[in-house]
Nucleic acid binder design. Structure first.
Lengths: 352, 352
DNA sequence: CTGAAAGCGCTTACAG
DNA sequence: CTGAAAGCGCTTACAG
């Protein structure tokens, strides 16, 4: 333990400057841009810093440099495990660029939106990553008017004037529907997400496009309402089980609903995929562990986060963002697993 | 949306002052100590603040006021559910006093200790709550030399010169042992925590005191080593099952080990408490859900956190802490539930 | 009750 | 490559 560390008052940059026999400007440079210093000078400063354990006062640094090196990540619901991988990708990109980050968990509350607007407005962050599909606002004050760089990730925000990184939801949904069609299914069902949600809209559009292209009439499709929850899957399954003529394949707008549906119909004694093929969307970890394993479209979660954070770093550091980068759309591979199989009746016969 | 909000450059206190026709000092007072202002003046400032949505620059405020209004809570392992209730109590006290808090999760890593020391040293927090039983240090620099107020909670730190809030571990353990003795048990076992741990030391001391007072020789006690984990409970149970003469009651130094032990002996076909009474320590939620429900000593988790945070607030605001407050020891009630019962053989007969 | 002014601890053009 | 000096946006004794 050094004498200086015993001092009750924290060290200031001037103390280090005096010890090293240089100006405070030089100490500052040693800490933030060492390449600007002669090796000998740098060494003397570093020695003094190491000896004392000096750490710069963060508030002073932030105030003067007008940069916090912190990013706000706005998520709709941190409890949703879908985001953990996205956050991993974000952390990778950001910490690689020297940025820290903090979570703004929206959780549908008005207070949280205010908190988020206040954090940005009080200058606590250099940029914002929006994973929630909308621009937080409170009392007429919107994040978009605050002049802080933003990037939307996962859920696109139509009309936004900042970069966006999303999955190819439409194309993937189309491919999922084609998968079901190619297995011979013609009596199809679609289990929907919340009607206003962009992901739901994109996925439904892709699903419908594929059917139309295959000559399957959309009015033959059974559409179940849903909201991306397990419970919605169960509810849809109840309706499904009660039907006199059942579809032979279900396209669920996400995995959680697909699994709720799957468990319910299996409990009722139906075989999957024998009686009903089920396809989900997202590729959550749990989809691997259900019985049978769920056929799904795997979102590139980590890549989404990584790409979004990289774009934000560019925006924050003033690097020009090309038009191609301004709207990145990552592919979503189909994972054909055990929950989908050939239509046993070719979709032609009726179940009683 | 107001014109001002459209401005790219964030508002400064001088802007509000100009709008309200007052000095920046008055705006500052309106925001931090409104009771010092005449009602009319205050109203004019508030109106300007509300109209613009002005939020003070946090870095400037922290730098000038030399207070961050943030507390660092150091936990050994955030994944341990034991801490969630403690944190709830902490949050209650701190947010009531206007403080925010951030978690420093130690997780046994050297890097984390450095991070924690750096956070404190760079002036990011006004105080520290230590739930980990030791003073974090790194490279010879210790939190105790930094002059920031600290309070130890849950795990006492012997010899520390700051306030401590702990449970009455010794007294509670004594009461737990008396409970077993009063049920007629004389052949006892003790499942220990990590040997250096203060909680283990206190609980073992209380257990031993009770036996000695009852005239039970300590050498008749079977001591199983442990480390507070479920696995340690299972391991102890394996040793227990292999013994030719089995104890009739087990005192586990925490619930997690008690439950590991309980599940293992039940799987082996023994009856609890018929063949072996089991008593735990902590009162974790899971202890309610095992079969049979676990007799345990319930730590006042939320109260521990609340008391610790209140003491820290006093220390941070310069309120004198009385001698009685400097070392608070909260009672730990015994919850006699289904896992303990009368010694079937009175502890006198031998099992073959 | 209110204002003028100093200053918190840094960073960064601007010179040299 | 290095230093002197200005200034980031607040708060707070100090006066009045």
């Amino acid at each position: 333990v050094d004498d200086f560390a015993k001092d009750r008052r924290p060290l200031r940059i001037a103390d280090i400057a005096a010890m090293a026999g240089v100006s405070t400007a030089t100490v500052s440079r040693a800490l933030t841009s060492p390449e600007k210093l002669r090796a000998g000078t740098l060494a003397r400063v570093n020695e003094a810093v190491a000896r004392t354990g000096y750490t710069p006062n963060l508030a002073a640094r932030v105030l003067r440099a007008r940069r916090t090196m912190v990013v706000l990540v706005v998520v709709p619901d941190i409890a949703n495990p879908f985001f953990s991988d996205v956050l991993r990708g974000i952390d990778e990109s950001l910490s690689g660029a020297g940025y820290g980050w903090l979570i703004g968990n929206l959780g549908n509350s008005r207070e949280k939106a205010q908190e988020i607007v206040d954090i940005v407005q009080s200058g606590q962050v250099d940029g914002v990553l929006l994973l929630n599909g909308s621009i937080p606002e409170y009392d007429g004050r919107s994040l978009s008017s605050l002049g802080v760089p933003m990037v939307a990730v996962c859920e696109a925000i139509p009309g936004a004037d900042f970069p966006q990184v999303e999955a190819q939801n439409l194309e993937a949904a189309r491919e999922g529907a084609v998968h079901l069609l190619s297995l011979g299914h013609r009596r199809l069902a679609y289990l929907a997400g919340p009607s206003g949600n962009i992901l739901e809209q994109q996925r439904r559009a892709g699903f419908c496009e594929a059917l139309v292209a295959a000559g399957v009439a959309l009015r033959s499709v059974r559409f179940y309402p849903g909201d991306f929850t397990f419970a919605a899957g169960r509810a849809a399954a109840t309706g499904f089980l009660a039907a006199t003529v059942r579809p032979t394949a279900l396209f669920a707008a996400n995995d959680e609903m697909a699994i709720g549906f799957l468990k319910t119909v299996r409990t009722a004694g139906l075989a999957v995929p024998g009686d009903i093929s089920i396809l989900g969307f997202d590729g959550i970890a749990f989809a691997d562990f259900v019985e049978p394993t769920l056929t799904t479209l795997r979102q590139p979660r980590q890549a989404l986060g990584q790409a979004g954070a990289s774009l934000l770093v560019k925006a924050m550091t003033g690097v020009p963002v090309t038009a191609a980068e301004a709207h990145i759309r990552l592919p979503v591979p189909l994972l054909a697993r055990a929950s989908t199989g050939p239509a046993s009746d070719g979709g032609q016969h009726r179940i009683r």
